[in-house]
Structures are given as C-alpha cells and as structure tokens.
Design a binder for these strands. Structure first.
Length: 558
RNA sequence: UGGGGUGUCGCCAAGCGGUAAGGCAACGGAUUUUGAUUCCGUCAUACGGAGGUUCGAUCCCUCCCACCCCAGCCA
C-alpha cells in the first residue's frame, strides 16, 4: 500500500502510550487538555500542541478541554483569552462545553494549600526574594533550609489566612512546599506555591491578592477535570516529580499523568512569546496578526488555511528529540493543500506594457480562461483581450541568457488563453528603460492553441488587458529573520530582516479579483498563492502573498 | 564534581533482537497553454563513539562523547 502520511492515522509515542492505557483498561475514557496562558497570541508551536491534544482526544473518542492557565494576572489579558479561543476554533477544534480556567479552581486550590499546611507539608516563608534565591543553592550545591521552615501549623495557618486577607504587600511572604532543599532537582527545593500579587485578574477581579504558581495549579486542575493524559513540552519534565508529589499529598479526585514532547522549532522563525511580544510592542510588525508573524492570526491573514497547518503539524510528527524543522516543510504543506483547490487567476505584479501592432485599435474580444487545470468542475471565466496589455517585467529580457524561455526581441511566446505574440521592438524612455514592448500576434493561435504549422513556443505568459485591469496593491512577505537560527549570536533583534515586507503598489489584477473574499486563497498563475487582505477596498484591493510557487527557473538561475 | 533528557540521510521522523518506513530538500527523466502541478527514478552496507552479550544488535549491557532543560514569588 502506498499510503501517504496524510491518509494514515498519525502515530507517535504519545498515542502509543494512550493506546496502551486504553488497552490495559488503565483509563476508561481519554481526556486531554490544551492549557494556554492568556498572555499573548497562539503560534505555530501551540498549533502542534493543539493538534496533538485535540487530535488524540478525537481519535480515542475522548475529549479535550480548553483550559486557560490564568494564574498570573500581571501578565494576562481578556483580549488574549478571546484571541486564543478564536484561533483554536479556526484551527478546526471544538472544546464543546469544556472551557475552563485555572481561576475556576482558586477556592479549591486555596483549600488544598491549607490541607498541606495542616499536614505539615507547607509553610509561610518571610524570606525576601533575593535571599531566597541565595538559599536555594546552585545546580551543584544543596540549598539551605529557611529559618521559617519550622513554623507551627497554627502560625502557618494564621499567616496564610492573613496573606489571603491582604494584610501584606507584594513579595512580603510566600507559601512554600516543604520538600527537600538538598534535592538535585531544583523544583523540589521547597518550591513556592502561592505568592502575593495585588493585581486585578481578568476573571476574578480583585477577589484575590494571592495567586497559586503554575506548579500548584496545573496538576490539581488536571485532577479536578479528570485529565487522563497531561501532555506538555520537555522543559516541564523536571516539574513532574513536583506534579506527582502534590497529587500524592492532596485529596484530589483523580490521578493524572504528565507526558512530555519536544516543542516545535522552525528555521528563520522565532516561536518565543516573549520575543513575539517585543516585536509587536516595539512596532517591528503591524500587530499580532501581521502576516509575517508565526502566530495563528498572522498565518491566517497571510492566507494559509487551517488545513495546511494541520497537515504541516502532522508531517512534523511528535517526538522527544529537540529539533528544528526546515521552514520549507511548512511552505510545502501550504502549497500541497492550496494547489488542489485554489482557483487560478491572472495578476501582473510589475507591469510592462505590451502593444500588439497588428491588433485593431479599439477592438476587444472575450476569451475563455480555465479556473483550475485539474478541477474542470470549477469551470471557466471570460477574460478580455485587446491591443494593449500588461505583462510581467520579469518576463522580458533585452539580452537574455541561453536558458531564458520568455520574451526578448524577436522571440515568440504564448499569452495564456490568448494568442502567440512575437516581440518586434522595444520602446525606451530617456533613461534607456524599457517602457513598452511592440509585438505582433498570430490570429491563428486564438485561445493559446498551437498554429496550423505546429510552431512551438517555449513559454506561456500571464497578462492582463490594460483597459480592463484593476489596480491593486500586493504585499510580498519573506522571513522575518535573516538567518535560520535567529538569536544564535545573542541578539535576536539584530537578526531581523530589514526587507521582510515588500509592498508593490502599481500592480494589476483581473476584474473578478476586485470582489475576492478576504482570506480566500487564489493562485495567481505563475507567481504564487494569494488572498485578499482586509486593508483593501473594492476599488483598490490589497493582496497578500501566502506562498510563492516552486520556481525551478529561479533556482537554476541562482 | 548536581538532577533530568536526547543523539537514525542536508532537515523532520519510523523502527521495540532478525538484517534501515515515510515526508521535506536535492538530483535525473516523462507529461504539461502555469519554468506550477502530476508522474517515474536516484538519494543511510548504515543508526554519536568504543567495547561487550548473542547465531544475529539501531534495538540488550558497560564506558565515553556531544547537545538540550533546570538555580522566576513566569508558564
């Protein structure tokens, strides 16, 4: 069987684990979760996690919760909560009624903190942050016990309640788990469970001034929701002993298990929320949805369909080895999903006037263009042919090299769906720039068909009737960073590509494109996949280049 | 000189003791009114290294090397 990667169900070690648990009856139903922190927009890395978590749930007939890990109000915003939901839906996943927030559990979490205190497993520490860091030891030296580690249960209870009551300023005290200051695992050196944060939470408002840390919220939230497989990225592996310790020391309703996979890295791309936030904040891009951004919002605006993202994620796979995927793999997935369905149209990005000397002035005729070469059901559309046309500047060379198949003085080419034309002479301006091509056409080649004498032509060009073409702006995007490993030398911003956005203003497109729906993919023949941008209007549409076509000529040329 | 991970083709990634899937890229060639698509074909005697166990090891053992993560009251 020559099954493709897309037709066979994805297989990876996570799915193997889930399958084994199901087969062994260890779980009765599969429940996963996607737990974003609402402090930024979702990006390609999140797409991998979303596809994994929702994908596993779907494949095993289980469910996947969308849970906001909103434990740090100083960084989180409602706007991000909204954007994240929009993006997950767009990617094609549905959490149904299973929308949760760690903040939904604040009261329960608080009660469990008291439970730990009662059992002598947690204590309130007055040590200032800097000193606590010094006491934590180093990677090779054990830490020191805090002098507050031996407080009585009663004192801890009173202090913790006072913390909740808002009697202390930020940073004055924290609640810590009493584990082992000498552990080789730094996360077990009496980790902080609660800190004082006098901040307004997007959901709980000012109800709280103490907030649980990630470690104290995540595993318990998983337990509360009955998550069976808590899948996260590799950097949380060190946290698993703490995750398990808390689960074991608390009367939680379930026993979730954590599994880790390697996060996604892509060449010429940065997938760090911190850096993406900086790009937006400092105006290096137009916003979170700038088409150059690796955010789902940016990618969507650029014209990439959700299906392409899913395809890409599926091709990348899931494993535990750190890796960096070639960005070309992403482009390939986009082309592969767009090619079978995107309607073909013609657009001239950098126009060059072409005048057909033997075509009657004022005459015009309607030709038929095929909408998709492989999908006849997409039908045809009428296009207007006339004496004055526009062709692409790149399609003409006055002194062409050997392998240049396109137009040059004396050369004949086919105008797609039109006629064969031969370049007879060139018009130049005072500076010697070619401003127009004077050609003749062969009436016997209508529709682009070969003439009776069987003459062959080396190239077929796209074109537009000058009088009918609609002016448009076309935006070409390239990698935001100019090296495959941005930041490898220390300063990521120094690797920002200065020319990642190229705005073409003198472009022309087919009249039909003036009403193209925003975001809907079309292929501009011979140049790439594009989609209308919301910035455009019917009079002056704006198009984004989603991805170019593969170009073996450009490659051979170097 | 701590703890936890990972090392299979240029980039991802299968493989779970029986003699190296697949995708991307690359390179040939066919078809082509997109130098696109499609289509054929080529592309790891080899699995970080060295030993060992075994009839047989990428898969088991030992040692070594390289790289990644951890010293936030971030997640």
């Amino acid at each position: 069987m020559a099954d493709t990667a897309t037709s066979e169900p994805p297989r990876d070690f996570i799915r193997d684990i889930v399958q084994a648990d199901v087969d062994a009856g260890r779980v009765t139903g599969v429940v996963t979760r996607f737990p974003p922190e609402p402090n930024g927009f979702l990006h390609l890395g999140h797409a991998k996690s979303i596809c994994l978590n929702f994908g596993v749930a779907r494949e095993f007939g289980g469910k996947c919760h969308l849970r906001f890990d909103d434990t740090n109000p100083v960084k989180e915003e409602q706007a991000f909560i909204d954007a994240i939901q929009r993006d997950v839906k767009w990617l094609g996943f549905d959490w149904g009624d299973n929308l949760f927030h760690a903040s939904d559990y604040f009261e329960q979490l608080y009660a469990w903190a008291e439970h730990l205190i009662e059992g002598g497993f947690a204590y309130v520490d007055d040590t200032p942050p800097e000193q606590m860091r010094a006491q934590r030891g180093t990677l090779t030296e054990p830490g020191q016990n805090s002098p507050f580690r031996y407080r009585s249960v009663e004192e801890n209870q009173a202090l913790f309640r006072d913390m909740r009551a808002g009697k202390f300023p930020n940073g004055a005290r924290v609640l810590r788990a009493k584990i082992d200051m000498a552990s080789g695992n730094m996360n077990l050196r009496d980790p902080v469970l609660y800190r004082i944060l006098h901040a307004t939470h997007p959901r709980t408002g000012d109800a709280w001034c103490i907030y649980p840390t990630y470690d104290f919220a995540h595993g318990q939230s998983d337990a509360i929701e009955g998550i069976t497989h808590s899948v996260c990225t590799l950097e949380f592996e060190d946290h698993k002993p703490l995750y398990d310790w808390l689960i074991e020391h608390l009367p939680v309703p379930a026993r979730p298990r954590q599994y880790e996979f390697a996060r996604l890295n892509i060449t010429y791309t940065v997938l760090s929320k911190r850096i993406l936030t900086t790009l937006v904040r400092d105006g290096h891009v137009s916003g979170w949805d700038d088409p150059r951004m690796p955010t789902l919002a940016g990618i969507r605006r650029r014209g990439v369909p959700a299906a392409a993202l899913r395809e890409f994620v599926g091709r990348v796979g899931v494993a535990r080895a750190n890796s960096t995927v070639d960005v070309q793999m992403f482009d390939a997935a986009v082309r592969d999903t767009l090619n079978p369905s995107a309607p073909r149209r013609m657009a001239v990005l950098r126009p060059l006037k072409l005048i057909i000397e033997n075509y009657p002035e004022g005459q015009t005729e309607t030709l038929e263009a095929i909408n998709h070469p492989d999908v006849p059901e997409q039908g045809t559309r009428p296009i207007t042919f006339s004496r004055e046309l526009y062709v692409e500047q790149d399609d003409f060379m006055e002194n062409p090299p050997r392998k240049f198949y396109r137009l040059s003085p004396g050369k004949e080419v086919r105008l797609r769906y039109g006629y064969y034309v031969t370049c007879r002479s060139v018009e130049k301006d005072a500076d010697g720039n070619v401003v127009a091509l004077r050609c003749t056409y062969d009436p016997e080649t209508k529709g682009g068909n070969a003439p009776p004498d069987g003459r062959k032509v080396q190239a077929t060009l796209h074109w537009l009737s000058a009088a009918d073409a609609v002016p448009a702006e076309i935006r070409l995007y390239s990698h935001l960073f100019n090296r495959p490993d941005p930041g490898a030398d220390g300063d990521v911003m120094a690797d920002l590509a200065p020319d990642s956005l190229e705005v073409l203003t003198g472009c022309f497109v087919e009249p039909a494109l003036a009403s193209a729906a925003v975001g809907e993919a079309v292929q501009f023949e011979r140049t790439g996949y594009f989609c209308a941008d919301p910035d455009g209007t019917a009079e002056r549409p704006v198009f984004n280049r989603t991805v170019g076509l593969r170009d073996s000529y450009a490659k051979a040329k170097g």
